[in-house]
Write a protein that binds this DNA or RNA. Structure first.
Length: 800
DNA sequence: TAATTCGCTAGACCGA
DNA sequence: TCGGTCTAGCGAA
C-alpha cells in the first residue's frame, strides 16, 4: 500500500528511545504546522576494519559487553568500497556507545570507523537531507517510508525572540531565589513586554498579577508554532533561568515542537539550550561563530557593543544594580521596560539579518541551524567531507588522538610570500590579486591527501609542487571534488546575481548563497593544516603555500618585465606602480596575459586603481610589511595594518593618523599634516582631550595569574579586580594612562575609574600620537622635531 | 572542544 | 640607566 506524500521544510532531526530502540524523528514544517515523523527502520551503526572479517564477526558475536550492550546485526556494508570492513548495527545509541567503548575487549584487532558520528547527524548524512530546506517524505501515518530532499526554493521562516530581566540583589541572579521582573517578546513588526504587580504607562507593556502569570503568558507566546526562537545568550542565561522559574511555579514549559521543555545540553565547555523541532538560535553564539569566520568583525560581544558595531546605534545599558533599584522604587519602570523590549528586538534583528547566510550554510553542509550556528570552520569542512565520503563509498577518516594532534602542532610549514615594500609616496597604483588563491590552487593542482604521491611517474613530472610533493593528474582527490563543486556553484550564482542585479528580488538569497560557498571554499586550506583535522596533511598544506609563493612571485617578475614597478605584494597580491606612459588598459592587458598562462581555475583579477599610496619604513630601515595606505580616484581611503585599524591604540592617535594620511594622500599637503599634529599635541597638553579619546582597548586572553609580563592592560585589570570588579578571560578592557605612578602599567587604570582630565599628556603625545604619525611624516622628509610647535629649531623637549 | 602562517610593535623584564 | 630579549596582542592574507 503506497504511503502519503508530504513536502515541507526540515527543521530538525533527533532521536528518542522507546523499548530499547533508538528512533529517528524528523520535524517538518508543513501547511499544518510543525509535524513529527518517525523513521523506525534506521539503525545506529559504525564500522570496524579487521584483517579477517569472518574471524572478527565470530569474535564480536562471542564477546559480552557491559550493561548488556549488544550488536544487533553484523554485515558487509554496501556503502563502503573497501574489503575487510564490517558494519555493526545496534538497536539503540546506548548499545552503540557501550560496544564502541569496549571494542578492545574483542579478541581480534579491530579498527573503528565513524563511531563518533551522532545518530541524528548520521541520518542526515545518509539521506542527504537538507535542514532548513525542503524535504519530501513518503509516510504512513507518522511513520516514514522514504525520505529525500525536496525541490530547492526560497523558504520563509517564522522567527521570534525573547529576553528576560531578573532581580539580582547584591549578587548575580539566582533562578532558585530571584524572580524574573519582566520579559520581552518580539516578532516581526511587533514587540511586547510582560511584567507584573507594578504600574506601567507604556502601551507595549502587559501587566499581570504575578510572575507566574507573566511567565505563563511568555510561554504561550513561545508556543505559537515558531520555526526559530532567537535569544541573546539564551544558551547560558535566558533558557536555563526560565526553565528553573517555570519549574518553581509549576508552569509547563513545553515549547518544543514535541511538547517537551528545553534541554540544557553540554556542548564543549559551555551549554546549549536545545529545543526539539523549533530551532533555538542564540544570536550571541552565532556572532561568535561568524566573527571567527571573518563575516563580522566585532571586539566586544555584549549586546550594546554589538548593536553599536553592526548598526551604528547607541544602545544604553542599564546596570544590574540600577534594575534592582528601579524595581524596588518603582521609579523609571517604563524606561526599564523599554530597555527590555530593545533587547529582544535586537536579538531578533541580528538573528534575522544573518539568517539567509546561516540557512545556506545549513543546506550546504546538511546540518541543522542549531548545530551550524554553534559550530566552527573546521566542523563545516568536516560535515562536507563526511557527506562526500558517504557518496563516494569511502570511510571517514578518524579524528586524531590528543597525542597525535599535539605532535602535529609542533610541525609547522612555510606560509605565503610577503614582499618588502618600496617605502615612500607613490602615484598611480594598481592592485592585482588572485581570486580565492588557496582553493583555486588546490583545484588546479588536485591537492588532496588522497591524491598525493600517486604511483604515476607522469604525474610527478607534470604536477610537482616546489616542495617536491606531487599530485595525481588522473584521479580527482576527494577534497578537490568537493571544492570543485562549491567553486562551480559559486561561479554560477555569481553569474546569476550579476544578471539579476544587486537590487533585484532574489539578490539577498543569491548573495547569501555565494557568501556561504565562499566561506566554505576558504576553510579547506586551513583544515589541511589544522592539528585536529581528520584529513590533516602538512604536505598538502605546504604544497598549497609553496605554489602560492611561486605564482605571486612569478606575477611580480612578469610585471617588472612588462614595465611596471612592483611596490609590494602579500600572499596573493601585487601592487604595481603604473608608469606615466602606461594606462589602465595596459594593466588589464597584463592581467589577461597572466590569466592565459595560469592553470585550471586560477585567476588574477584587478582589485582596483589608486591615485596615490604610501608605504613606510621600520625602525630598522627596512620597508614595513602589512602596513600601507591608499586613496582611489574617488577620494576613498584604504588604510591597512596601520594603528588606525588597531583597537589597541587610543582614538586620539588613530584619528590623528587618519587625518594625517588624508592630508598627505588627498591634499598632498605635509604642511597641513604638521598642523593637525601640532593641534592634537596642544589639545593633549592643555588637558582638553576627553576621556573617550584616550581609551586603549585590549583583551585579557588568559587568567590574570598566568601572565609572565604585566602589561598595562593586565595591571589595570588587576587593580579593577582589587576594587571588586569582575573581569573574565576573554573580556576586552578599556584603560587610560593616568598621571600617578612610575611605569606605564603603574599608571594604567580601567577607564570607568578615571575622571575626565586625569591623563598623562606626555604618554599620549610620546607613546601614542607621535609614533602613529612619525613613520608617515618621515617618508616625506620630516623628523620628530619638525612635528613640534615652533618648527625645526625646537627640541623634543619643547612639547614634553 | 577555535582553519593557517607572516609580521609589526609596545612595554616589561633582566643583566651589565 | 641602558640596551637587548621576550611576552603579548592584534592585524593581513
Amino acid at each position: 500500500m503506497p504511503g502519503k506524500e508530504i513536502e515541507g521544510v526540515l527543521l530538525d532531526v533527533d532521536y528518542t528511545g522507546s523499548g530499547g530502540r533508538s528512533i529517528i524523528r524528523l520535524f517538518v514544517r508543513t501547511a499544518s504546522g510543525i509535524e513529527i515523523f518517525e523513521d523506525t527502520e534506521f539503525r545506529p551503526y559504525f564500522f570496524v576494519r579487521a584483517r579477517d572479517t569472518e574471524k572478527a564477526e565470530k569474535a564480536l558475536l562471542g564477546t559480552a559487553f557491559s550493561d548488556g550492550a549488544r550488536i544487533s546485526k553484523i554485515s558487509k556494508p554496501k556503502r563502503i568500497n573497501e574489503l575487510n570492513i564490517l558494519q555493526l548495527e545496534f538497536d539503540s545509541v546506548k548499545d552503540l556507545t557501550g560496544v564502541r567503548s569496549e571494542i578492545n575487549k574483542v579478541p581480534v584487532a579491530l579498527e573503528r570507523f565513524e563511531h563518533d558520528i551522532p545518530f541524528a547527524k548520521r541520518y542526515l548524512l545518509d539521506h542527504t537531507l537538507l535542514p532548513m530546506g525542503s524535504v519530501r517524505l513518503e509516510v504512513e501515518g507518522s511513520r516514514i517510508i522514504r525520505a529525500a530532499p525536496g525541490a530547492e526554493k526560497e523558504e520563509k521562516y517564522g522567527v521570534c525572540a525573547f529576553d528576560l530581566e531578573t532581580l539580582s540583589p547584591g549578587r548575580f541572579s539566582d533562578p532558585a531565589k530571584d524572580p524574573v521582573l519582566m520579559a520581552s517578546f518580539a516578532e516581526k513588526n511587533n514587540a511586547v513586554v510582560l511584567s507584573y504587580g507594578k504600574k506601567f504607562h507604556s502601551g507595549f507593556v502587559k501587566t499581570f498579577r504575578d510572575e507566574k502569570e507573566a511567565l505563563s503568558a511568555l510561554v504561550q507566546k513561545l508556543q505559537q508554532g515558531w520555526d526559530i526562537i532567537c535569544t541573546y545568550n539564551g544558551d547560558s542565561f535566558d533558557f536555563p533561568y526560565l526553565l528553573e522559574r517555570c519549574k518553581k511555579h509549576g508552569i509547563g514549559f513545553g515549547i518544543s515542537s514535541d511538547g517537551s521543555a528545553p534541554k540544557i545540553k553540554k556542548k564543549g565547555r559551555d551549554n546549549a539550550a536545545r529545543l526539539h523541532g523549533v530551532q533555538h538560535l542564540d544570536a550571541y553564539k552565532m556572532l561568535v561563530f561568524l566573527a571567527r569566520l571573518g563575516v563580522v568583525s566585532l571586539i566586544k560581544f555584549d549586546i550594546e557593543s554589538v548593536v553599536g558595531a553592526l548598526y551604528g546605534e547607541t544602545k544604553r545599558k542599564i546596570a544590574a544594580a540600577r534594575i534592582n533599584e528601579i524595581w524596588e522604587t518603582g521609579e523609571g519602570l517604563d524606561g526599564l521596560a523599554d530597555y527590555c523590549r530593545e533587547d529582544s528586538e535586537s536579538a531578533l534583528r541580528i538573528g534575522t539579518q544573518y539568517l539567509p547566510l546561516m540557512v545556506e550554510l545549513c543546506r550546504i553542509v546538511k546540518q541543522t541551524l542549531f548545530e551550524v550556528s554553534r559550530s566552527s570552520a573546521s566542523m563545516l569542512v568536516e560535515y562536507l567531507i563526511m557527506n562526500k565520503c558517504g557518496l563516494a563509498g569511502a570511510l571517514i577518516a578518524n579524528k586524531p588522538d590528543d597525542e597525535t594532534s599535539k605532535q602535529r602542532m609542533l610541525q609547522t610549514y612555510k606560509g605565503g610570500f610577503v614582499m618588502e615594500p618600496l617605502p615612500g609616496l607613490h602615484e598611480n597604483i594598481a592592485i592585482l590579486d588572485f581570486s580565492s588563491l588557496h582553493p583555486t590552487i588546490m583545484i588546479s593542482h588536485n591537492i588532496s591527501p588522497d591524491s598525493r604521491a600517486c604511483g604515476h611517474e607522469e604525474c610527478r613530472g607534470k604536477n610537482s609542487a616546489p616542495t617536491g610533493q606531487w599530485f595525481c593528474t588522473k584521479k580527482e582527490g576527494l577534497l578537490v571534488s568537493i571544492l570543485k563543486e562549491l567553486f562551480e556553484r559559486r561561479m554560477e550564482i555569481k553569474k546569476e546575481l550579476k544578471q539579476a542585479g544587486k537590487n533585484s528580488q532574489g539578490a539577498t538569497l543569491l548573495d547569501a548563497r555565494q557568501h556561504a560557498l565562499k566561506i566554505l571554499l576558504n576553510s579547506f586550506y586551513g583544515y589541511l593544516g589544522y592539528s585536529r583535522s581528520r584529513f590533516y596533511s602538512r604536505e598538502c598544506a605546504a604544497a598549497v603555500t609553496a605554489w602560492s609563493r611561486q605564482y605571486v612571485q612569478w606575477v611580480g617578475e612578469k610585471a617588472e618585465k612588462a614595465g611596471f614597478t612592483v611596490l609590494y605584494g602579500d600572499t596573493d597580491s601585487a601592487h604595481l606602480e603604473i608608469p606615466p606612459e602606461k594606462s589602465k588598459k595596459s594593466v588589464e592587458e597584463f592581467a589577461a596575459g597572466i590569466n592565459s598562462e595560469l592553470p585550471g581555475v586560477m585567476n588574477l583579477e584587478i582589485e582596483g586603481f589608486y591615485r596615490r599610496g604610501i608605504f613606510v619604513t621600520k625602525e630598522s630601515g627596512e620597508g614595513a610589511k602589512k602596513k600601507y595606505a591608499l586613496i582611489d580616484h574617488d577620494g576613498r581611503l584604504k588604510i591597512v595594518g596601520f594603528e588606525y585599524v588597531r583597537r589597541d591604540w587610543a582614538p586620539i592617535a588613530k584619528e590623528t593618523q587618519k587625518e594625517v594620511i588624508m592630508a598627505i594622500l588627498r591634499d598632498g599637503s605635509p604642511e597641513k599634516a604638521i598642523g593637525i599634529i601640532r593641534d592634537k599635541v596642544r589639545l593633549l597638553k592643555e588637558g582638553r582631550v576627553p576621556k573617550k579619546d584616550l581609551v586603549v582597548l585590549t583583551q585579557i586572553k588568559k587568567p590574570l595569574g598566568k601572565y609572565e609580563s604585566i602589561g598595562p592592560h593586565v595591571a589595570a585589570a588587576k587593580k579593577a579586580i582589587a576594587r571588586g570588579r569582575e573581569i573574565d578571560v576573554g573580556s576586552v578592557i578599556g584603560y587610560v594612562i593616568t598621571r600617578s605612578g612610575k611605569s606605564i602599567s603603574d599608571r594604567s587604570c580601567l577607564e570607568e575609574y578615571v575622571n575626565e582630565g586625569n591623563y598623562d599628556a606626555d604618554y599620549y603625545i610620546q607613546n601614542q600620537v607621535i609614533p602613529a604619525v612619525i613613520k608617515i611624516m618621515k617618508e616625506l622628509g620630516y623628523s620628530r622635531e619638525d612635528l613640534v610647535q615652533g618648527g625645526k629649531q625646537s627640541s623634543i623637549g619643547s612639547f614634553c
